[in-house]
């Protein structure tokens, strides 16, 4: 079983932007219905974006699967997004491009309070258990499904610290879902877990939370969707 602690997971990340729009308090029911009815087929066609995570018992690095063009041969730029975790040293480093800047967030792990449920289901061939927590800043309900038999506390986005590898993440009952499509066990090299050299504004979790909170507050005042400009 020891070999089941190192490898690469691929995920598909998909946002239901119509559901997200439906949560905006400044829109009337008429506007929400109009958006939903007009764009539902477009939203359905959205195949999501591929992500990947290299993990070892002590470290993980989560980022985009590839910079190569999408099917159809057109390349959209992806904002920089690297999430590095070191479980041994209880440290993390995130490189996140948002709001017109690149931020480098250095802090200790700061695990959320997880509530463990009694549901099990299969994701990418692994039996997972359900855990729930809440994002206090974005006010989101976060549901994670972690593998019973991959004892690595890593996970996609900025979510981690469960007794098993998180293979599915669901934010606000399906507003955004990240689902593992494949887990490959193999020795990972230090290069797989290395952050790129990037210049950016160095901050900690507290400042990061404040930046997000400010953007949400300002966007609501300005009647704009805050999640056009920060990751959901």
């Amino acid at each position: 079983m020891a070999q089941k602690t190192e490898g690469v997971v691929t995920y598909v990340r998909k946002e239901q932007w119509l559901k997200i729009i439906n949560r905006l308090p400044f829109l009337s029911q008429e506007q929400k219905d109009r958006e939903s009815q007009t764009w539902k087929n477009w939203a359905e066609k959205d195949k999501g974006i591929k992500m990947k995570m290299a993990f070892s018992p002590n470290e993980s690095l989560y980022t985009y699967f590839s910079d190569e063009p999408e099917e159809g041969g057109y390349s959209w730029r992806k904002s920089e997004y690297y999430i590095y975790r070191n479980f041994e040293k209880e440290k993390k480093t995130d490189i996140i491009e948002m709001l017109g800047k690149t931020y480098i967030i250095d802090d200790s792990l700061n695990a959320p309070v997880w509530k463990i449920g009694n549901q099990i289901k299969e994701v990418a061939g692994y039996i997972c258990m359900k855990a729930e927590t809440e994002d206090p800043i974005k006010k989101q309900k976060i549901t994670a499904w972690f593998a019973q038999d991959i004892p690595v506390p890593a996970g996609p986005e900025r979510v981690n610290s469960l007794p098993g590898l998180i293979l599915e993440l669901d934010v606000n009952d399906g507003d955004m879902v990240i689902e593992a499509t494949n887990v490959t066990f193999k020795p990972v090299t230090p290069d797989d877990l290395k952050l790129p050299k990037t210049k950016g504004k160095k901050i900690n979790d507290k400042v990061y939370d404040a930046v997000i909170q400010q953007n949400i507050a300002e966007s609501m005042t300005a009647h704009r969707n805050p999640f056009w400009t920060v990751r959901y």
Binding site: M1, V113, W114, K115, G117, M129, Q148, L162, G164
Partner: peptide
């Protein structure tokens, strides 16, 4: 049952 996952939860809210 080798390598089973063992968790301690707070009984009030099932938090880990």
């Amino acid at each position: 049952l080798a390598e089973s996952t063992v968790m301690l939860l707070n009984p009030k809210d099932s938090s880990l």
